[in-house]
Amino acid sequence: MHSEKIPFSMARLDDLLDDFGIDVLIVTSKHNIQYLLGGYYHFQFDFMEAIGISRYLPIFVYVKGALDKSAYIANRNERDSIQNRTSAGYWMPTVVFGSSTSVEAMTLALEHVKSAATSALNVGAEMSFLPADAADVLRSELPNCRLVEAMRPLEKLRSIKTAAELEILREASERVVASMMDAVSRTRPGQSKRKIIDHLRQAELSRDMIFEYALVTIGTNLNRAPSEQRLEPGDIVSLDSGGNYRGYIGDLCRMAVHGAPDEELVDLLAEVDLIQQAARAPIRAGLTGSDIYAAAAEALARSPHGKQMHFVAHGMGIVSHEAPRLTASGPIPYPADDASVPLEAGMVISIETTLPHARRGFIKLEDTIAVTPDGYQAFGDGSRGWSRISG
């Protein structure tokens, strides 16, 4: 073991594990491993898992209340990455090398679990990130254990960001917006949607980000997938992009138009912005997610196009939709487990309002809001009006 600072709150994690009845965590998702290891990075975190006859499967084992019994099960080719990490002074648990397949990784993890804890266990596992063959090994080697879904306690652990995490999220948001403005400056009539997305990709890459996605519309077409559709004179463009910076998502939406926006376009975007401002205005620690939706609903009821608009608010951080989970009726359905729970300082909320206008096109703003004790901070909050495409 190492004496360096532990990158997560053991007390908070242990309390969450108590709440969910978990004795031992077997973490297999790359995003949660990256979080628990304080930003540890191996190149296979970014790329496909397939390798040789199996897949890359990192595993972090955590025994509740016993940090000294934790372990990281590493692939054979991770030695250099881990050496660089520890040489730089970062904490790492005991590292067990030797896996090349998912079965080998789980076998090594369970050997460690058996040496560190009793056989009658409540084992927390991320079912969506547990390969079938590794799950078979787990059930075979620990036949008396009770498997408990660990996704929820892990995302609740991540939901309150540290000051360092908030700074990364601020930077991620600002870099995404700057990349959008860079893409707008390079866009010209006649270019395809694929070309515009490529402008955005290159802009994010040039800012040391990993480009994850771009949802783009042109003109009155509401289709946001990449295509050969061409930008025509006077068309509007919506840019909704997720860029990953040091493991955290910058996810915002901004609008552009070729030439100058007419009065109607100015009014429509202002109408969308009024919903955004109404939703963010009451945000502070102690407010509930349902209060955000109530504020947005009041503004939508007064808006001329309120019945056509779609509003959603959701937690974000390492994952673009994570705790706090505030609605069960958004574009990505999940239980609204946190809708009536008070927000806490350090939580980060994405708020987004969309107007799919049949005659003018897809008009949307998406903003990133960090909850503070007495209010909020907006990250990447520039360029919220109509950015102009020249040429």
Rank of each mutant, 00 (worst) to 15 (best):
V63G: 06
N32T: 01
Q34S: 14
G124P: 08
S102F: 03
I51T: 12
E49K: 06
A132R: 13
Y72W: 07
Y35I: 03
N75D: 13
E104V: 08
G124A: 10
G38M: 01
F60Q: 06
T28L: 01
R55T: 09
S81P: 05
A132H: 12
E126L: 14
F43Q: 14
E49T: 05
Y40I: 04
T94F: 01
S128G: 13
L108V: 00
D46P: 02
T118S: 15
V61D: 07
D23N: 09
E78F: 05
N75W: 03
A50W: 12
D80K: 14
N77L: 09
I59L: 09
A116L: 00
F45P: 04
L130E: 10
T86P: 05
E104A: 14
E111N: 15
S87I: 04
T86V: 15
L25T: 01
V137I: 13
E104C: 08
A135T: 08
G38I: 04
A117M: 13
A125V: 15
A71H: 06
I53G: 11
M106R: 02
Y56D: 04
A125G: 01
F60L: 15
L67I: 08
I53K: 12
K69D: 08
S99G: 06
G89M: 14
W91F: 12
S81V: 03
L110G: 05
L138Q: 02
V96W: 07
S115D: 15
A120D: 14
S29Q: 11
S70V: 02
S140A: 10
S54N: 07
L36V: 04
A66E: 15
A66R: 15
R55M: 12
Y40A: 06
N84G: 11
S81K: 02
I26E: 00
L142I: 07
A135F: 04
N122I: 04
H31N: 12
A66L: 15
L36R: 03
A50P: 02
A105E: 05
A105V: 09
Y56V: 01
A132D: 13
Y40R: 02
I73L: 08
Y72F: 15
S102N: 09
Y62V: 03
Y56F: 15
M48L: 13
T28S: 13
H31V: 14
S54P: 05
I59K: 08
I26N: 00
A74M: 04
H42D: 13
D80N: 14
H42K: 13
S29G: 14
V137Y: 02
V96Y: 06
P143S: 11
T28C: 09
G52F: 10
S128W: 07
